[in-house]
Design a protein around this nucleic acid. Structure first.
Length: 1000
DNA sequence: GCTCTGCCTAGAGGA
C-alpha cells in the first residue's frame, strides 16, 4: 500500500460488489501478508486489497476503487477510492511537514523540548486555521494528522538531548566534518554542540548569487575538536520525510550557506536534520560544490530569462524551447509538471518526432495531450505567448536592484522609499506570521512620500547586509511614524538598527492565468466543456420552458422579484434561468447592472441554486454584496478582510472564524458549506473551498474588463456561467504593445459575443437625461439606449442661485455679445462642448505626462461657478484622460479651497456617475502629435456617459478632430449646434473674476 | 506614449 501515499485517499464504508481475484493467488497473498502485520491504527497499518476497479467519476477523472480489508476473516471490508489529483499538488505529507516544521521551530525558539511542551505545541499548531484549511482541502482528519505529528515528537526530544544539553565538549555527538576553512587537516572528527536558535525562517535575498530563500533555523553551533572550539552561525535545514541524506537535500543546505554569507561570516557548513529519527548530518560547503550549483542555477536562469525570442529576419516574437526533455522515464513519472511539460512540448515546441524528443517520452507527450485538438493547442500557445510578453513588459519589471544599489537618501526622492528609520515601541504579534512594527525617523520628520496605508513594502536595514529582511504592508502612515505589518519579528535585531522601507514592485501575477490555461487543457469533463464553448465556439444551449427549471414553491417569490424589473432585465433573468451553458448580459451605461446582478442572485437563491459571484476587483464584488445584504440573503465572502468593504467584512471567512471562534475542522466545514452564495475575486480561486464545492451558476461582473485566462478561473467551478459587461466600454488593461497587437485585450465577454443567441442587452437606462444619452446613442449604441422614464429623460440640474451668480458675473464683464457662459450654465442645455481653439490653450508635454494648464484653469472656474450657483460639490465630477492633468486640476482646486469635487481619469470613472461632469480633453497642438488614449472610442464612450444632468466638454476642436472617435462626436455636436467657441484670452479675464469671486 | 488591478508565495515531501 506504500504507493497510496502520493494519492488522495478517501475511505468509504462499502459492501459493494467486487471483481474476484483468482482464489489460489488470493489465498497465498492473504497468508503472506497477515501474520506479520500489526493491525492497529496509525502509520503502520496494513490492509489486503481484495479487488481493484477503475472508474470515471463525475468530473471525468479516473479513480481506482479498491475493496480492502484489515481482518483475516475478511468479514469487514471497506472501499478505498484512489484519486490522482493533478490540479492539486498539495499532499498530506506536505501538510504534516509544514506542521512539524512549525512545532520544531517553536520548540527551539523557546529552548524547550520536554514531551509536555512538544505535545502542547503540536496541539496548538494543528488547530491553526491555516492548517485546518489545508486539511479541508485534502480531506484529512485532524486527529489523524495530530497523531502522525506526535509520532515524531520523541525524536525531537532525542535530538535536543544529544545536541543541546549542558555538558563538556566530548558529551556531544561525534561527526565527520572537515570544514573547508580548515584546509586539509588530518582528523575530520568533531563534536557538535547546538547552542541556540538565532532566527527562524530567516528570509534572505542574495543579489550576488542570484538566489533567495528562507532558512528553517539559523543556529549558533560550537564545533569541538580536542581542546579547540570554534563558534559558527549555520543554517539548519529540517526534513520530515525519508532520511535520505540525498544530493538534493545536501545541495539545498549548501545553497543556504551561500545565502547566509549575505548576513554574516561564511558558515563553511550547514546542518541537515531528519526529524523522523532525530539524525543530523553536517554538510560542508565545498568550493567545487558551490560552483557546480551556481552553474546549474545560471543555466536555469538563462532559460527563464529567454522565454521569448525574435526569430532572425522575421519580426515575429516566439516562445523559446525549454531545456531538452530528460531521457529518464523515472524522473518524469514522479514530476508534478508532466502535464504542463507535455503540453508545452506539443503546443509550443511542436515536438512530435523522434529527432527532437527521446523516443520513450514521445508516447508520454502523446498520452498527455491526445485529447486536444489543433485549435486548443493554438489557443494555448497564443495565450502563453501573450501572457509571457505581458509579464515582461517594462512596468512589470521594475526590479529590486535599486533597493540594493541605491542608498535610501537617494531613493527617497522618487517618493517610494523612506530611510533612516528606527524601531519604536514593542513588536506586537498579530497572528502567526504577522508582526506589527512601529518606526520613526531617527532625526526629523518623514520625507514627502507616495507610500500609503495598504501598500506592499520591502523592509531592509540601511546596511547592505540587511537587504530585504522582511516583507509586509503599511498599516498606517503620518507625519512622524510609520506602522507596518511585517512577516518577521525584527526585535531580534539591535535596537539601534537603522531601517528603510521600499515600495514593493508590482509583480503581475502570471501564475494564476497560466494555471487556468493549463487547467483548460486538462482531460476532464469540466475543461472539455469550456474548451468546446470558448475555443471552438460551440453554440450555447437553452432549455425551452421555464417550468422545468423553476421549483413550484419558488414561483411566487420569483414573480414578485420580477415585478421590480424592466422588460430587458426580465428577459435577462429568463435567459439565464433557461441557459445550459452561458449567458452574456450587455449592461450599457446606466442600465442598472449592479441591480440586475443583485436581482439575478435573489432569483437563483429563491430557486435553491448555488451561485459563485465574482469580478476582477474587490470593489465590484462588494458593490453587489452591499445591495444583496439588504435583502437578508446570506453569503460567504472570501478574500483578505482588509481589502473588503467595511460593511461587508462581517461576511468574510476571517471575521466569521473570529466572531464564532471557530477552531475545529467540523465548524470550518460547516462554514464553507452552509451558504448557497459564495463571492470572491477571479484571483481568489485557489481557496480550499474550490477543491470540494461546485456551483450551479457562476456570475462574473465587469467581465468585459477581464482578460480571458483570468476570467476562466472561476468558470471551472460552475455548471454554467453568466458574464456581465459592455465591450463598448474599456477593455482589459494590457501594457505590452505586442501582446496587445496579438489580441490580448480581447475579453472572454467580447470573444463569446459572436454567439448572439447567448446575448441579452440591457437598454433601458436610468442615469442620463435624453440629451446626454443621445451622444452615445449616436456614437456607439445605434440608438438602442432608451430612458427608463420621462422623469429620467427630462431631468435637469438644479442651480438655485444661478440668477445671482449671473448678475455678479455681468458686473465684471458684458457677456451679451458672447453668451457662452449662459450656454454652459443654463440647466436646459445639458450638453455643450467648449472649444478653446481661439483662447488658445496649448498642451504641455513633460516626462510625467500630458497636461493643459489653461484648460485646467477654465475647468476650475466653471466648477467654482457651479458651486456658487448652489450645486453640491459632491455632485460634480471632473474627468481627464491624463494623470498629469488631474494633478494640476487638484492643485488649483485646493488653492481655491474647493473640496469634495472628485477628480479622476476616464478609466477610474468607469462604472460610476455624477450629476455634473466636466471633461478636459487636454490635447491641443499644431504639430499633429496624437496620443494613444483618445484613439480608443471606448474611452470616449465612457467619458460621455458618466453625467446624469449636465455634461461639459472642454478642448481644442481642431486638434481633437484628428482622433476618429472625436471627429464622429464633433460631427453630431455640430448638427445640434452644441459647440461653443471661447473668445480669445478668455481664461485671463476669468481668472481675475475667480479671484474676486473668492474674496467676495 | 503616459490609462493600472488582482494575488501571502518559498518550500512543505515524493523517489
Amino acid at each position: 500500500m506504500e504507493q497510496l501515499n502520493e494519492l488522495e485517499l478517501l475511505m468509504e464504508k462499502s459492501f459493494g460488489e467486487e471483481a474476484a481475484a483468482p482464489e489460489e493467488l488470493f489465498q497465498k497473498k492473504k497468508e503472506a501478508s497477515f501474520p506479520k502485520t500489526i493491525l492497529s491504527h496509525g502509520m503502520d497499518n496494513r490492509y489486503l486489497v481484495l479487488a481493484v476497479n477503475t472508474v470515471q467519476n463525475k468530473e471525468g477523472n479516473y479513480e481506482k476503487h479498491l475493496i480492502i480489508t484489515a481482518s483475516q476473516s475478511l468479514d469487514y471490508k471497506e472501499q478505498c477510492i484512489l484519486r490522482s489529483d493533478s490540479s492539486n499538488p498539495a499532499t498530506r505529507q506536505m501538510l504534516i511537514g509544514t506542521v512539524l516544521h512549525e512545532v520544531f521551530q517553536k520548540a527551539i525558539s523557546s529552548k524547550s523540548f520536554t514531551p509536555e511542551k512538544l505535545q502542547e505545541l503540536s496541539c496548538q499548531i494543528v488547530q491553526e486555521i491555516k492548517h485546518l484549511k489545508e486539511m479541508y482541502r485534502l480531506n484529512l482528519n485532524p486527529d489523524e494528522v495530530k497523531q502522525e505529528v506526535e509520532e515524531y515528537l520523541p525524536s525531537f526530544s532525542k535530538w535536543a538531548g544529544d545536541f543541546m544539553h549542558q555538558g563538556t565538549s566530548t558529551d556531544f555527538p561525534q561527526m565527520q566534518l572537515s570544514l573547508p576553512s580548515d584546509g586539509s587537516s588530518n582528523n575530520p572528527t568533531r563534536n557538535i554542540e547546538v547552542i541556540n536558535s538565532l532566527d527562524i525562517e530567516e528570509s534572505i535575498w542574495s543579489p550576488r548569487f542570484g538566489l533567495k530563500g528562507k532558512i528553517d533555523v539559523t543556529v549558533g553551533v560550537k564545533i569541538h575538536q580536542g581542546s579547540k572550539t570554534k563558534y559558527k552561525i549555520m543554517p539548519l535545514e529540517l526534513k520530515t520525510g525519508k532520511e535520505s541524506n540525498s544530493i538534493e537535500h545536501r545541495s539545498q543546505v549548501v545553497l543556504y550557506t551561500l545565502l547566509s554569507q549575505e548576513r554574516r561570516a561564511d558558515p563553511d557548513a550547514g546542518l541537515l536534520l531528519y526529524l523522523k529519527t532525530g539524525q543530523m548530518y553536517p554538510v560542508p560547503a565545498n568550493h567545487l560544490d558551490k560552483r557546480e550549483l551556481l552553474k546549474l542555477r545560471n543555466q536555469m536562469a538563462f532559460f527563464l530569462l529567454h522565454r521569448i525570442s525574435k526569430s532572425p529576419g522575421k519580426e515575429k516574437t516566439q516562445l523559446t524551447f525549454l531545456p531538452q526533455i530528460t531521457e529518464e522515464e523515472k524522473t518524469c513519472k514522479y514530476c508534478s509538471q508532466v502535464g504542463n511539460c507535455a503540453l508545452y512540448s506539443r503546443a509550443v515546441e511542436q515536438q512530435m518526432d523522434e529527432n527532437s524528443v527521446p523516443v520513450v517520452m514521445l508516447s508520454k507527450i502523446q498520452e498527455e495531450t491526445c485529447h486536444l485538438k489543433l485549435t486548443h493547442l493554438e489557443y494555448f500557445s497564443l495565450w502563453y505567448l501573450m501572457l509571457t510578453l505581458e509579464s515582461q513588459s517594462k512596468d512589470n519589471r521594475k526590479n529590486h536592484q535599486n533597493i540594493w544599489l541605491k542608498p535610501a537618501s537617494e531613493m527617497e526622492e522618487s517618493g517610494n522609499c523612506i530611510g533612516n528609520l528606527i524601531r519604536t515601541e514593542h513588536v506586537k504579534r498579530v497572528c502567526g506570521g504577522q508582526y506589527l512594527h512601529h518606526f520613526q525617523r531617527k532625526n526629523g520628520s518623514m520625507p514627502v512620500t507616495n507610500l500609503m496605508a495598504g501598500d506592499r513594502i520591502i523592509l531592509s536595514g540601511e546596511e547592505r547586509t540587511l537587504f530585504a529582511l522582511s516583507r509586509g504592508y503599511v498599516k498606517e502612515i503620518n507625519m512622524t511614524t510609520v506602522t507596518c505589518l511585517l512577516d518577521r519579528n525584527l526585535s531580534v535585531l539591535a535596537e539601534s538598527t537603522l531601517f528603510r522601507i521600499d515600495q514593493e514592485e508590482k509583480n503581475c501575477d502570471i501564475d494564476t492565468p497560466l494555471g487556468n490555461l493549463s487547467k483548460l487543457m486538462e482531460n476532464t469533463n469540466a475543461s472539455k466543456k469550456l474548451r468546446d464553448l470558448i475555443i471552438d465556439f460551440r453554440e450555447p444551449q437553452f432549455i425551452p420552458y421555464l417550468s422545468s427549471v423553476l421549483p413550484r414553491d419558488a414561483k411566487d417569490t420569483v414573480a414578485n422579484i420580477l415585478k421590480g424589473l424592466n422588460k430587458p432585465q426580465r428577459q435577462a433573468m429568463k435567459k439565464v434561468l433557461l441557459s445550459k451553458d452561458y449567458t452574456l448580459i450587455v449592461g450599457m451605461p446606466g442600465t442598472g447592472k449592479t441591480t440586475t446582478i443583485c436581482t439575478l442572485v435573489r432569483i437563483l437563491y429563491a430557486c435553491g441554486f448555488s451561485v459563485l459571484l465574482t469580478s476582477f476587483t474587490h470593489s465590484a464584488v462588494d458593490n453587489i454584496l452591499l445591495k444583496l445584504a439588504k435583502f437578508q440573503i446570506g453569503f460567504l465572502r472570501l478574500g483578505q478582510t482588509q481589502k473588503v468593504h467595511p460593511d461587508i467584512q462581517k461576511f468574510t471567512e476571517e471575521e466569521i472564524c473570529r466572531s464564532k471562534s471557530i477552531k475545529c475542522l467540523a465548524l470550518l466545514k460547516e462554514l464553507y458549506n452552509c451558504q448557497l452564495i459564495v463571492a470572491t475575486t477571479c484571483m481568489g480561486i485557489s481557496h480550499p473551498i474550490f477543491s470540494h464545492r461546485t456551483f450551479d451558476f457562476c456570475i462574473v461582473d465587469e467581465a468585459s474588463q477581464i482578460s480571458q485566462p483570468v476570467c476562466l478561473g472561476p468558470l471551472f467551478f460552475a455548471q454554467r456561467f453568466v458574464l456581465v459587461g459592455d465591450h463598448q466600454q474599456l477593455p482589459p488593461l494590457v501594457l505590452n504593445p505586442e501582446a496587445s497587437a496579438l489580441g490580448m485585450s480581447e475579453s472572454l465577454f467580447k470573444r463569446l459575443e459572436k454567439n448572439q443567441n447567448a446575448v441579452v442587452q440591457l437598454t433601458v437606462q436610468y442615469r442620463m437625461n435624453s440629451k446626454i444619452m443621445s451622444l452615445s446613442n449616436k456614437l456607439t449604441y445605434d440608438g438602442k439606449l432608451e430612458c427608463g422614464s420621462d422623469k429620467v429623460a427630462n431631468a435637469v440640474i438644479n442651480l438655485p442661485h444661478f440668477k445671482d451668480v449671473k448678475l455678479e458675473l455681468e458686473f465684471y464683464a458684458d457677456y451679451s455679445d458672447n453668451p457662452w457662459l449662459i450656454g454652459v450654465f443654463e440647466p436646459n442645455n445639458p450638453v455643450c462642448f467648449l472649444n478653446t481653439e481661439k483662447v488658445p490653450a496649448p498642451e504641455q508635454v513633460e516626462k510625467g505626462g500630458v497636461s493643459n494648464i489653461t484648460e485646467a484653469k477654465l475647468i476650475v472656474f466653471l466648477t467654482s461657478v457651479f458651486i456658487k450657483a448652489g450645486c453640491n460639490p459632491s455632485d460634480i465630477g471632473i474627468i481627464a484622460p491624463y494623470r498629469q492633468q488631474l494633478k494640476i486640476i487638484n492643485d488649483l482646486l485646493e488653492h481655491s479651497s474647493v473640496k469634495m469635487v472628485e477628480v479622476n481619469t476616464v478609466d477610474k470613472y468607469q462604472g460610476r456617475d455624477k450629476r455634473i461632469i466636466l471633461v478636459s480633453f487636454v490635447r491641443s497642438n499644431k504639430d499633429g502629435t496624437l496620443g494613444e488614449l483618445l484613439k480608443d472610442w471606448r474611452r470616449l464612450n465612457v467619458a460621455i456617459t458618466r453625467a446624469k444632468h449636465k455634461l461639459i466638454l472642454l478642448g481644442c476642436v481642431s486638434s481633437l478632430k484628428r482622433y476618429p472617435p472625436l471627429e464622429k462626436l464633433f460631427c453630431y455636436l455640430n448638427t445640434e449646434k452644441l459647440i461653443i467657441d471661447l473668445p480669445s484670452r478668455e481664461h485671463e479675464s476669468l481668472c481675475n473674476i475667480l479671484g474676486d469671486f473668492q474674496r467676495g
